[in-house]
Design a binder for these strands. Structure first.
Length: 837
RNA sequence: GCGAGAGUGGCGGAACGGCAGACGCGCUAGGUUCAGGACCUAGUGCCCGCAAGGGUGUGGGGGUUCAAAUCCCUUCUCUCGCACCA
């Protein structure tokens, strides 16, 4: 018997699959398609366990659905623009393009060593001009539709990456990539108007039944829709309008002050020439220096300064003081709030601190405490008081009534606010897609005409000494002629956020080599949506939100027929070791390379899938890996020890149901083996297809192997020969069921057994329901809910028979003696419960 | 504070409201082997017991039910997301 040497056989089969082009995919309208996709990686050059996990999950599904007869699209590509390439260039003087290309080669080798069944003919690389050309084309489409615009605004700036970041890319006040504290800069930048799609992005979350709830909640939170009312106050001294947004218009009679954000445009005008001017100017300048993050930290002290100016409340004409406060954000709502201390806890505390009046205007339904008894704000609904003609209304009714009243007098009206901001896509970096825009002295901002695309990234840029956007220091790139008038012009020197690239790559896979368009609609309409998308939770509101936005936009443009790109989403858990995330500093890193070298890809894949359900975190265990290696060797020996089963009938390969194991002459052991075999097929199929519980699928295969060992250990040579067909069918089924998980060893054994074709091109086995039937079942006998005995009975026993067997059971009888039987419950084929007292 | 998810042996994890702990790891004993970290067999939640057996057990407390890890209420702990969002 040959030894199991993964390092010898795995590369051999990888080469075999490649040469036979098993995994290249063609459109075929007659077959059911299945599109399984793992988030494409940044080509860092090094595959880590997180990669290995996500690819292993995807590959099981791809291989399984192929065997199920689906036309499977399973592509891979590279999210190849981004900072690491540029940093490598700055530090080591290498060309970002070459650096990236070398990493892709290295990483692809590692992926291939895992035996992943990708259609490499559809490989997509975002830094290639034939890809980013379509980024530019799509940008121009956004621009044409008014959804891409340039605006000067305070933006997040990462000093370490020397570029701006979108709101989504700031995590806990730091850069999502490098963690450096982000600060604020006022810059003119390109934005995509994702806020136009806020409602649809929110509402359509309901359509995403195959998405984890937590991802949907995160997107919902991020979009942060809130319905309320705009109310226009008037500045008494200047006559300026001062608009606020509130979700509690019913409390407008309780407003006792107003607070403006330090950046509010009216601040300077209000304080001009007043005694407070100097103090407030200083305060505003200080606030501008502090990031929004530190200013709005939960433990930050609320500070307010009186401007000396006052506002007139539109509902009752009252004059109230206007303050400037650190806790009011210019980026949300109107940058101004009304203070209602009686009905908002934060306002209540603020009013106490600054001795501002508190006036109750919504009374609790059953009592009427006076304002000075209040120890906190009353935030619940109630009955309107001190509110003029709205007195006596319920506060809920009053919300609408007051909003209508304001709208009738042109002093406000209903409005909706979102936390979601427009997506800032400019980046002051080199290694990205150039934004295809030209600035002309006489024509202004001019989009580069489609036929001039792509605007190529210039090569040979000196990246080590950059102070600003590297392209800006590249005269041959900057100087151009205006596409409109032909005069002198300069190019936009910012590049696009790499999330732009990844927002539509899954569409490009459907038609990756198209030169006349990003893709043909008919190709996309066949393959999309992605049936199963797999990736990390960290993209819950980045990539996944942007991609949904792109899809909806492209749908509106008639370019795709789908409104949601990803039918089902699996957010796979992280890989830990010794209770901590794998990291160099902790010294607990295990790489796919070393696992492949020592145990083979099959063992690594099997372990990673067996150790935990895919959506849960996984704790790496070297001993667990050993266990999986042991199991594969056990499978190997099972075939080595039973080679004669396959040798005795040349050419008689059992496949599917062609040759059914004979039932006649089968004894108890054979029937049991046949039952286990069919039950395993049923179990594994459901576990992969319906539940995505690969760990229990694998354990079921282990049980089948155990059952085969047990049977073969008992049976003599004659018995084996008599039941050769059943045994062969069982062994072949092990290979078929295991093939998606451990593709190499199964292929090797398939061929060693002289079976036809490739194991990966067989049909998935079907189970025979009749084989699951058993003649006898063991039923549990309970007395008062406690198990007191078990008994074997014919499977079709009636309730009366069951009860009789239960009562007569020698272990059970003592528990019934001298007692009255109050009730009996029988569950056919399962149990009898006797309630006695 | 709001929202989502999760608490089961020494460990990873299984269990349509119906035998808790499948499968694997680890451990114990025995076998096999020149030897082993290979392989085979048996055992392995906890407590009492030589055993048969009994008791107990799914974070805590309550409830529904003949029957609860599973359903309901309550509470604690952990993880994640959001958070002066007006």
């Amino acid at each position: 018997m040959k030894e199991y040497i993964p390092s010898e056989l795995e590369p051999r089969w990888q080469e075999f699959w490649r040469q036979k082009q098993f995994y290249s995919t063609r459109k075929d309208p007659n077959r059911k398609k299945y599109y399984v996709l793992e988030m494409f990686p940044y080509p860092s050059g090094k595959l880590h366990m997180g990669h290995m996990r996500v690819y292993s999950i995807g590959d099981v599904l791809a291989r399984f659905f192929r065997m199920r007869g689906c036309n499977v699209l399973h592509p891979m590509g590279w999210d190849a623009f981004g900072l690491p390439a540029e940093n490598a260039a700055a530090q080591h003087g290498v060309d970002p393009a070459e650096w990236t290309a070398a990493n892709i080669v290295a990483m692809k080798e590692q992926q291939d060593a895992l035996g992943l069944s990708y259609d490499w003919e559809r490989e997509v690389t975002t830094c290639a001009p034939d890809y980013y050309c379509w980024n530019q084309w799509l940008f121009l489409l956004f621009y044409r539709e008014g959804l891409a615009y340039k605006r000067k605004a305070p933006v997040n700036w990462c000093p370490s990456c020397r570029t701006v970041l979108a709101n989504e890319q700031v995590v806990d006040g730091g850069c999502w990539r490098c963690g450096s504290a982000v600060d604020s800069r006022e810059l003119e930048q390109w934005f995509l108007r994702i806020t136009d799609y806020a409602d649809r992005l929110l509402d359509d979350l309901e359509l995403l039944e195959g998405w984890p709830q937590r991802v949907k909640v995160m997107q919902e939170n991020w979009i942060g829709r809130s319905e309320g009312t705009n109310i226009v106050f008037t500045v008494k001294e200047t006559g300026d309008e001062l608009k606020v947004f509130t979700t509690r218009p019913d409390t407008v009679f309780g407003v006792t002050y107003m607070v403006l954000a330090p950046e509010h445009p009216l601040v300077n005008k209000l304080i001009a020439g007043r005694p407070q001017e100097e103090e407030i100017t200083k305060f505003v300048a200080q606030m501008r220096r502090e990031s929004e993050i530190t200013r709005t930290a939960a433990d930050a002290e609320k500070v307010g300064l009186f401007t000396g100016a006052s506002a007139v409340n539109p509902v009752n004409g009252e004059e109230i003081p206007i303050l400037v406060g650190n806790y009011v954000l210019m980026s949300y709502g109107t940058g101004a709030i009304m203070g209602v201390p009686a009905h908002d806890q934060r306002d209540f505390l603020f009013a106490r601190k600054y001795n501002l009046p508190v006036r109750m205007v919504v009374a609790p339904p059953d009592q009427c405490p006076s304002t000075d008894e209040l120890t906190g704000a009353y935030e619940e609904p109630g009955i309107m008081v001190n509110s003029g003609l709205f007195d006596g209304m319920s506060s809920e009714e009053a919300k609408k009534a007051i909003t209508d009243w304001l709208a009738d007098r042109d002093r406000g009206g209903g409005d909706v606010m979102y936390r979601l901001r427009d997506w800032l896509i400019s980046r002051q970096r080199y290694w990205g897609t150039p934004i295809p825009v030209v600035y002309c002295g006489s024509c202004g901002t001019v989009p580069v005409p489609e036929e001039e695309l792509p605007v190529l990234l210039p090569e040979g840029i000196e990246l080590s000494t950059l102070q600003q956007s590297p392209l800006a220091e590249c005269p041959q790139f900057v100087h151009t002629s205006c596409p409109a008038c032909g005069g002198e012009a300069r190019r936009e020197t910012d590049t696009m956020d790499t999330f732009f690239c990844s927002s539509w790559y899954y569409l490009r896979y459907a038609d990756p080599r198209r030169e006349s368009a990003p893709f043909l609609k008919e190709e996309v309409d066949y393959w999309l949506p992605v049936d199963q998308y797999i990736g990390g939770i960290e993209h819950a509101v980045l990539h996944l939100l942007y991609s949904r936005f792109f899809t909806k936009f492209l749908y509106d443009q008639g370019l795709v027929g789908i409104q949601e790109p990803f039918q089902r989403l699996l957010a796979q858990g992280m890989v830990y070791k010794d209770g901590a995330k794998m990291s160099k500093s902790k010294g607990n890193v295990v790489t796919p390379d070393e696992i492949i070298e020592r145990y083979g890809a099959d063992t690594g894949r099997l372990f990673i899938l067996f150790a935990s359900p895919p959506e849960k975190d996984l704790d790496w265990s070297d001993q667990g890996v050993e266990g999986c290696y042991r199991f594969l060797r056990r499978v190997w020996r099972l075939f080595g020890q039973n080679r004669e089963l396959f040798e005795q009938s040349p050419g008689g390969a059992w496949s599917g149901n062609k040759e059914k194991a004979a039932v006649e002459g089968a004894g108890r052991e054979e029937k049991e083996l046949r039952r286990v075999l069919n039950a395993t097929i049923k179990r594994v199929t459901a576990d992969i297809e319906e539940r995505y519980n690969f760990n229990t699928a694998i354990s079921a295969i282990m049980e089948l192997v155990n059952a085969l060992y047990a049977y073969l250990g008992e049976a003599g040579p004659e018995q084996r020969d008599t039941h050769r067909v059943l045994l062969r069918q069982s062994l072949e089924t092990v290979l078929l069921l295991l093939a998606p998980f451990a593709p190499h060893i199964c292929e090797e054994l398939w061929h060693q057994c002289g079976l036809q074709g490739s194991v990966h091109q067989q049909s998935w086995p079907a189970y025979d329901p009749a084989a699951l039937e058993v003649e006898e079942v063991e039923i549990v006998i309970q007395v008062n809910g406690k198990v007191r005995g078990r008994v074997l009975v014919p499977a079709d026993s009636s309730e009366v028979d069951l009860l009789e067997a239960a009562r007569g059971h020698e272990r059970v009888r003592p528990y019934l003696e001298g007692k009255e039987i109050l009730k009996t419950v029988t569950v056919p084929r399962k149990l009898v419960n006797i309630v006695a007292r």
